[in-house]
Write a protein that binds this DNA or RNA. Structure first.
Length: 276
DNA sequence: AATGCCGGGGG
DNA sequence: CCCCCGGCATT
């Protein structure tokens, strides 16, 4: 799978529309264009956002309904128009979204295995994974300038800027919006939950930053923390903003690849892609 | 030392 | 409007 993906990538560096291809009108040439297990006819419209769904995930998965995601993710698919700076070729990498992990691997299958083993604790269930791993990692495109290997036997004709960078294939790590709010404490070690949906709750270890479970949270009074100094003196006292903890473009993409940041981040304004 | 971003510039 | 950056609170 991944091999095929990589191959097609290297031969035609500009077919970047990959995961979004399912929605795009383009006659995708991607071998993986057939979306894995997604409810049909759910292109970017309302609820669930479709960010790069793993193309390589086994199609044997029993069509687990994708959990409703915060629709912000939908923006990412179209958000950034184009990179402003030259970027020749890109390589797809897979980054783990687990809280403090961020591991990057070059294959989807490798990433799935990583997540399964390291984070989900499952030993090895090669056959029939329910595809849950897919929730915990994201695609990541990286300019090759740093990774260039001298031996580029591909692209016979024009090695250089044969094609405009096209899009930087927006990569959309999931914005962990809810995470900070709803999480008073870790879940009980032995969940007695009524067996409802597979992806219903965060994992007990509380480490996954993007819990997208369909959780309905009631107003939790205690979570709101307003720091009011004991002195009522200053009128124009600054509200002291806590600064959200989500990783923003700068951290995610790095200083190099600034062209992948959202506009706000480039202007040093509040990031509008990874909201808190 | 690095990050996030407000406030305050220029074109 | 766009685009940038000094500087500072946060991490």
């Amino acid at each position: 799978m991944a091999a095929a993906a990589l191959t097609s990538l290297s031969t035609t560096p500009l077919l970047l529309g990959a995961p979004a291809a399912a929605c795009s009108p383009e006659p995708g040439l991607e071998p993986w264009k057939e979306a894995p297990a997604r409810p049909p006819g759910s292109c970017s419209s309302s609820s669930s956002a479709d960010w790069g769904w793993d193309p390589a995930s086994d199609r044997s998965s029993p069509s687990t309904p994708s959990p409703p995601l915060p629709s912000e993710a939908a923006h990412f698919l179209f958000g950034e128009p184009a990179p402003r700076k030259r970027k020749s070729s890109v390589q797809v990498l897979y980054q783990c979204l687990w809280k403090r992990c961020g591991k990057v691997l070059s294959t989807a299958s490798g990433m799935q295995r990583h997540i399964r083993l390291v984070h989900l604790g499952r030993q090895a269930e090669p056959e029939q994974s329910d595809g849950e791993e897919d929730f915990y990692y994201t695609e990541l495109d990286v300019g090759m300038d740093v990774l260039t290997d001298g031996l580029s036997s591909l692209s016979p004709g024009s090695p250089t800027a044969s094609a405009p960078p096209a899009f930087p294939r927006l990569e959309l790590p999931e914005p962990p919006i809810l995470s900070s709010l709803l999480r008073p404490l870790a879940l009980p070690p032995v969940p007695v939950l009524s067996s409802t949906a597979p992806h219903e709750v965060c994992h007990g270890d509380d480490t996954y930053q993007g819990c997208l479970a369909p959780i309905r949270l009631e107003p939790q009074p205690t979570t709101i923390r307003t720091c009011v100094p004991t002195l009522p003196s200053k009128l124009g006292a600054s509200p002291r903003k806590p600064r959200g903890e989500a990783k923003k473009c700068r951290k995610v993409y790095g200083m190099d690849h600034r062209d992948l940041w959202c506009t706000a981040c480039r202007w040093k304004k509040a990031c509008q892609r990874f909201l808190d």
